[in-house]
């Protein structure tokens, strides 16, 4: 159940002035894309100039599976965070 004030999670990718690629630096909460970019600028680039920032809502990042030999569970999903609490389920649903 989505709370009416819970902002979605966004993954942040930054390319520094001297860098060649965008690097994943972490995540943050924002209500919309413009805010996510500004928050990323404020939180992750305070000591840098002239960077490029990409933001993607976490739920839209799709990931490959880790090596089967290393994994115990066969992931039922291809999301970046494997744990089931990332599903939006109603509070009333117990034992899950």
């Amino acid at each position: 159940m989505m709370e009416k004030d819970a902002w979605p999670l966004w993954e942040i990718f930054i390319r520094s002035k001297q860098g060649l690629d965008h690097k994943h630096v972490g995540s943050l909460h924002a209500a919309d894309a413009a805010m996510a970019i500004e928050n990323a600028r404020d939180a992750y680039t305070r000591r840098m100039e002239g960077v490029s920032i990409w933001v993607v809502e976490s739920k839209y990042v799709h990931a490959s599976n880790p090596d089967d030999s290393g994994s115990f569970y066969d992931p039922a999903n291809d999301k970046i965070y494997r744990h089931p609490t990332f599903y939006d389920l109603p509070d009333e649903l117990k034992h899950m």
């Binding site: 902002w7 943050l28 909460h29 924002a30 805010m35 500004e38 928050n39 404020d42 939180a43 305070r46």
Partner: peptide, 11 residues
């Protein structure tokens, strides 16, 4: 009101 905005306004 939220951590990210605390940082923004301090900036």
């Amino acid at each position: 009101p939220i951590l990210e905005q605390d940082i923004a306004l301090s900036n």
